[in-house]
């Protein structure tokens, strides 16, 4: 056990933890916008897969990762838009349409992969950028300030999202629409338009989440490579009580515990691996049970808005 609390191990946990948290942050923050406006999109994992594929494919074909990222954002946005049409305009049951979107993304990304590529290939993804000054801090500089741009982006997204949700008129409208759409409607706020924007934005961020895997962290595409990360991302939104900072706490907890359990195994700590693998999930469920504030849940979550249903 003594080996565990050495500096290299702790630094290693931080480094891996930040990388593991990156895709969750994009996906969860995106879903936080969606849910705060009163819609839930269970199709995050499907959008992530499409984002991962399109980011990888376009990045590889054009040789420019930025085009890849843009493609992932565009595809994510379109899938978000599709979800918005189904859940906002057509007022379909959101749980089922979200699962439908997930299966659609899973299937389509596999199909496109097979049609366009012969097998798993890897590319050189976004390279780490050392931040001047901060990057030179002994020990911490390496693990905190020597990452690639998408990792930084994920963590910058947290204050940005928090700012938008709590400090701007737009954020106020999002929260109002999620809590009491009738009230928002009587004040002349276009409920459907707000939801279109958030669901599309959520889709776009899920697209980036996928791309962060395929062109920034793992740098390849494989069918079903997210293996359900999108669903964890949704759980993290609940964990964080719909607030970006809370979500970041959850994502970091989950990721750090995951990184920790790998170190436990690597160091040969006498510990059943099944238990180690379970650890991040168990910790998350435990924290969820303790921390979730149902009061914070948007009242209109999952309910389509129809004027006149007073």
């Amino acid at each position: 056990m003594n080996d565990l609390f050495t500096i290299p191990v702790i630094l290693g946990i931080i480094y891996s933890g930040l990388r593991l948290a990156t895709p969750y942050l994009y996906a969860s923050i995106g879903e936080a916008f969606v849910q705060n406006s009163g819609v839930y999109n269970l199709g995050v994992d499907g959008i992530m897969l499409m984002g991962a594929f399109s980011g990888f494919y376009v990045g590889m074909k054009t040789g420019n990762l930025w085009w890849g990222l843009l493609a992932a954002m565009g595809v994510g946005l379109l899938m978000g838009l599709l979800m918005a049409v189904v859940s906002v305009t057509l007022k379909a049951e959101q749980g089922i349409s979200g699962i439908g979107l997930y299966m659609f993304g899973l299937g389509l990304s596999s199909l496109l992969f097979k049609k366009t590529m012969t097998g798993v290939e890897s590319i050189s993804g976004f390279q780490p950028v050392r931040i001047p000054l901060l990057g030179n801090i002994p020990y911490l500089g390496d693990v905190l300030f020597n990452h690639n741009l998408l990792v930084y982006g994920a963590f910058l997204l947290v204050p940005l999202a928090s700012f938008i949700l709590y400090k701007t008129p737009f954020g106020l409208m999002i929260r109002a629409v999620g809590q009491n759409p009738q009230a928002a409607d009587t004040l002349g706020i276009n409920v459907d338009r707000i939801r279109y924007i958030t669901v599309s934005l959520g889709g776009m961020l899920a697209g980036i989440a996928g791309a962060s895997l395929s062109i920034s962290l793992i740098n390849l595409f494989q069918e079903n490579m997210t293996s359900g990360m999108g669903f964890i991302a949704i759980a993290l939104v609940y964990f964080g009580s719909w607030r970006p900072w809370g979500i970041m706490g959850g994502a970091l907890l989950f990721s750090f515990v995951n990184a920790l359990q790998l170190w436990l195994q690597v160091l040969g700590v006498n510990f059943p691996y099944d238990f180690a693998v379970m650890l991040p999930y168990a910790m998350t469920i435990l924290a969820l049970a303790i921390s979730v504030r149902r009061a914070a849940m948007p009242d209109a979550l999952g309910k389509p808005f129809e004027r006149g249903e007073f």
Binding site: S16, R19, P23, L213, L217, I218, M225, N258, L262
Partner: peptide, 9 residues
């Protein structure tokens, strides 16, 4: 993703 983290570790 976790497999990549394992290799990193």
């Amino acid at each position: 993703s976790l497999m990549a983290a394992a290799a990193e570790t």
